[in-house]
């Protein structure tokens, strides 16, 4: 089967959906200008030549405007795929995402739908405090938003196509170190996992996790880049006779509790790995709910391996210290056994 990078897979998903449905369009900063970037990580590069600048719509640098216009365009009958250059800029548009996009369906008693996708690159890449954050938890916390956090090319394509067809607002997170962007947008330290992507069309439903590695001794769940960190840790642990099961939820809202809980019931131990700071975060929530729902099956407390509770530091030494990695995961697992 052919292999695609995540950038290629996302581009293909957008292209297919734009061909399938005239109402689909992209809106964001520097996404269409001929000779420009094609989005901060080249996902939309080349698409304006095929679809024109009306459907790969460049905006002013105005994040509130981008999100608000996307909400309005969805109300008016289009299906926007909006993007921000860095996930950090989502904070500029929080009112539109949290107060409008997420709540209009509810406020209207279910009469109004907001079919929009908001794409956002996250993850620490030595860009310091304002261009490196992982911030999925903020959005998982908001009722009315769906949240995707896929980490393979196959999942990125199938989930983005499903997101475009969903009648609800979807936050779609992409990790900078997984894109596989090329040329001057290539990332130092990237994993860039090229993966199998079939030629024929497919969709991936929200709320279905994947077991990336089977094991009997401990369950490790991560998202985006930390799935790969968990797999690295599992490899190390395996050499020491500890078999870890690694779960990739793929979407955070809805979340596939069935897959996680049946794994925990089998292994009796859970480590949650997250690139976000730990306080009040995704890892805490997964841990708390697992304790509530599967306490009798747990042989040890749930452990979290997260970023430390500081802004993302700049110096590479400090950034490495900040982030979860395989060694920290291994240590956490060993503390449970």
């Amino acid at each position: 089967m052919r292999k695609l990078t995540i950038v290629e897979a996302l581009k293909e998903a957008i292209r297919e959906e734009m061909i399938r449905d005239e109402r689909v369009f992209c809106i964001g900063e520097d996404i269409g200008t001929p000779g420009g970037w094609g989005g901060a990580f080249t996902v939309t590069k080349g698409l304006s030549e095929e679809f024109g600048l009306d459907r790969i719509l460049d905006t002013p640098i105005a994040e509130t405007g981008i999100a608000g216009v996307a909400v309005g365009a969805a109300i008016g009958g289009l299906r926007p795929i909006a993007d921000v250059q860095y996930g950090d800029f989502l904070f500029c548009m929080m009112d539109q995402l949290v107060n409008q996009a997420a709540k209009l369906t509810y406020m209207s008693g279910g009469k109004l739908c907001i079919p929009m996708v908001m794409r956002a690159p996250v993850g620490a890449t030595t860009r310091a405090a304002q261009h490196s954050q992982s911030l999925e938890s903020y959005f998982v916390h908001v009722p009315g938003l769906k949240v995707a956090a896929p980490c393979t090319a196959y999942d990125c394509k199938g989930l983005l196509k499903s997101a475009v067809r969903d009648d609800n607002p979807v936050l779609f997170f992409e990790h900078k170190l997984l894109y596989g962007s090329k040329g001057n947008r290539a990332e130092a330290g990237a994993l860039s996992p090229a993966g199998d992507v079939p030629e024929e069309e497919y969709l991936i439903p929200f709320g279905k996790a994947v077991v990336r590695r089977e094991g009997r001794d401990v369950t490790i769940v991560g998202k985006l880049l930390t799935v790969y960190r968990a797999l690295e840790a599992a490899e190390i642990l395996s050499k020491e006779g500890i078999e870890a099961e690694v779960i990739d939820p793929r979407t955070l809202v809805p979340f596939d509790w069935d897959t996680l809980l049946s794994s925990v019931k089998k292994t009796g131990r859970l480590v949650v790995v997250d690139e976000e700071p730990g306080n009040c975060g995704w890892a805490s929530d997964i841990g708390a709910k697992t304790s509530e729902m599967a306490f009798d099956y747990l042989d040890a407390p749930v452990r979290r391996v997260t970023a430390i509770d500081t802004p993302v530091p700049f110096a590479p030494e400090m950034e490495r210290y900040y982030l979860p990695n395989a060694e920290k995961i291994v240590a956490a697992v060993k503390s449970l056994t």
């Binding site: 109402r23 369009f25 009306d54 509130t64 405007g65 999100a67 608000g68 216009v69 996307a70 909400v71 309005g72 365009a73 969805a74 109300i75 008016g76 009958g77 289009l78 926007p80 009112d95 539109q96 107060n99 409008q100």
Partner: peptide
Amino acid sequence: GGGIPVAAGIGLAFKRL
């Protein structure tokens, strides 16, 4: 002020459609 960019977006849809 929250409705102002939303209205622009509705206008965008009406025009594009």
